[in-house]
Design a protein around this nucleic acid. Structure first.
Ligand code: SF4
Ligand code: SF4
Lengths: 145, 145
DNA sequence: TATATTTAAGACAAACTTGTCCCAAAATAA
DNA sequence: TTATTTTGGGACAAGTTTGTCTTAAATATA
């Protein structure tokens, strides 16, 4: 069961890499991240572009350029990243994918899934990059998967 | 968030269609199901072939042939179908996909996900085709999605 | 200005899922 | 036997996600 796409996972790992950097005043280069995290540079670039366009990151071109968080890591939550990279309706999903829901009575797993989904959304809405960052060592981010 | 693949959903809808048939002694033709459920005939054929090969269904070729459940609908559970069509390790999934789990301490969402995953597995393990079938009208199965 | 660095953006390719097509094999019926 | 029906199984095509490559735009430095 794949919950997040590669794009989301790569995006998250890059964000955590930025958080792990001590010097918050400097931009972190995408090239550096792609090499340290073993992620395709161009793919990562596009992922981070999406986050930049949606206001989660700030980018700067030229020598010593790169990207930086636009908010403190304490104020960026998993849900913010996921909603951008997976789509706004990521949490509107159906468990069985049977057609006609809403028009007729729900299937037996609907109530279960409604609760599970809400819990998942809440977990994502309350887990910040800062919280993730404190538990995930820099070494670990570098592993290939 | 997509939980099940098209293959799983199509497979489930076909099984529920079979369950909805009153006469349990007859084979249900794949052609009929594909037309009634608006699913590609050949795609559905391959999906059902997997279920047949894994012993969940019985097939019979020739005129009046088709497929039939090998067990009563009360004894076939969602988890049986999903494990065949999505793979045995469907429930072994990781939420964030960060590398190095097991070697290092788990990430902050790990405990939450462990519980959620177990609940999902339990829900699938205890929901039978019969239970699904009683709640899902035949009309509803025919909607395209 | 000229050059190097770095993100932005789009075209293109590889891999995976989904869907289509063709023919073989098994069973029925005439 | 011959024709028909139906599943079995492989090759192939379309669509999506993932990954690669090339060029443009912005910035810094000399
Ligand atoms: S009732 Fe809910 S969980 Fe069940 S198929 Fe419909 S939307 Fe999905
Ligand atoms: S700790 Fe658990 S949930 Fe977190 S990344 Fe690792 S396996 Fe996934």
């Amino acid at each position: 069961m794949k919950v997040l796409s590669k794009a989301s996972v790569y995006g998250l790992r890059a964000l955590l890499y930025i958080v792990s950097k001590k010097d918050k005043s400097e931009y972190v280069s995408i090239r550096e991240m792609s090499e340290e995290l073993s992620i395709s540079f161009h793919f990562l670039t596009k992922i981070l572009q999406s986050l930049t366009q949606r206001g989660l990151l700030e980018s700067y071109r030229g020598p010593n350029g790169g990207i930086a968080l636009k908010l403190p890591a304490e104020e960026i939550f998993l849900i913010d990243v996921v909603k951008i990279l997976e789509g706004e309706n990521f949490f509107d999903s159906c468990l069985l994918g049977l057609p006609g829901c809403g028009e007729f009575e729900p299937c037996p797993v609907h109530d279960f899934w409604k609760v599970t989904k809400a819990a998942l959304q809440d977990e994502f809405a309350t887990t910040s990059l800062a919280e993730l960052g404190t538990k995930i060592s820099e070494n670990r981010l570098r592993l290939s998967g």
